[in-house]
């Protein structure tokens, strides 16, 4: 019976890179979609606003696991066979993070004081200018801390991509465990890798929050 060795550690370390890669895909994809949804959520067009509300409610009200299963089987229905696991996992995590990022960013955009919106209008800025020159730069400052905090959630949730056969940290742990059956050691090592990725992000998010609150203390 083989025991846990450097080879296994190397396999896990390699899988950690995939976890980071998948997180990056989810963050970039989710960021783009989520930003669009956040803008739709505060739009003046009622239909657009309601569509965004429904989208956010549905994404936040169903487990990511179910979302991933739906995409995995849905892709086959639309007619693609043999879609690489990274695409299915990437789409699922993109949808998931867009639903949460949209709501976080909406809050940040709306927390820019109303007088700023009015002042921009008085200066005859177009809605586009108002958004890009006045509102977003201020919202961005408020948004960094919660966004980095959500990044931790994304990294942790990539562990669910294992259900569609994507080999990231958690799946690598499962595979190794199947061959040597030392679950405690294997999953402790896997957990340590996740911690090593997430803890710096959490700490960073907290320090950003503190810096932002300096003026208010």
């Amino acid at each position: 019976m083989p025991t846990f060795s450097a080879v296994h550690l190397e396999f896990i370390a390699f899988a950690a890179l995939w976890t980071i890669g998948l997180s990056a895909i989810a963050f970039v994809g989710g960021g783009i979609v989520g930003f669009a949804v956040a803008l739709a959520r505060i739009s003046h067009i009622r239909a657009l606003r309601y569509a965004a509300i429904v989208y956010i409610q549905v994404v936040q009200g169903t487990p990511l696991l179910i979302l991933l299963f739906l995409i995995y089987f849905g892709i086959a229905i639309v007619g693609f066979n043999e879609v690489p696991a990274i695409i299915a996992a990437g789409i699922g995590l993109t949808i998931y993070s867009s639903g949460f990022l949209a709501e976080i960013w909406r809050g940040c955009i709306e927390s820019v004081p109303k007088t700023q919106w009015e002042a921009a209008e008085c200066l005859a800025l177009t809605p586009w200018q108002r958004m890009t020159r006045v509102i977003l730069p201020q919202a961005l400052r408020i948004a960094t801390a919660p966004t980095v905090g959500f990044l931790v959630q994304i990294v942790k949730n990539t562990s669910l991509a294992s259900v569609v056969g994507f080999v990231e940290l958690a799946q690598a742990g499962k595979l190794i465990n199947n061959s040597i059956f030392e679950p405690f050691t294997v999953f402790m090592v896997v957990a340590a890798f996740y911690f090593a990725i997430c803890f710096p992000l959490s700490t960073w998010s907290r320090s950003l929050e503190r810096k932002l609150n300096v003026g208010r203390r």
């Binding site: 294992s162 958690a170 742990g173 999953f187 996740y194 911690f195």
Partner: peptide, 23 residues
């Protein structure tokens, strides 16, 4: 708090389920 909040629930579930069994 830090350890739990910075590791995925899936891995925690595995550790509890398999870990207790190995104990």
């Amino acid at each position: 708090v830090e350890v739990i909040r910075n590791t995925p629930l899936l891995v925690q579930v595995f550790i509890v389920y398999f870990g207790i069994a190995t104990l």
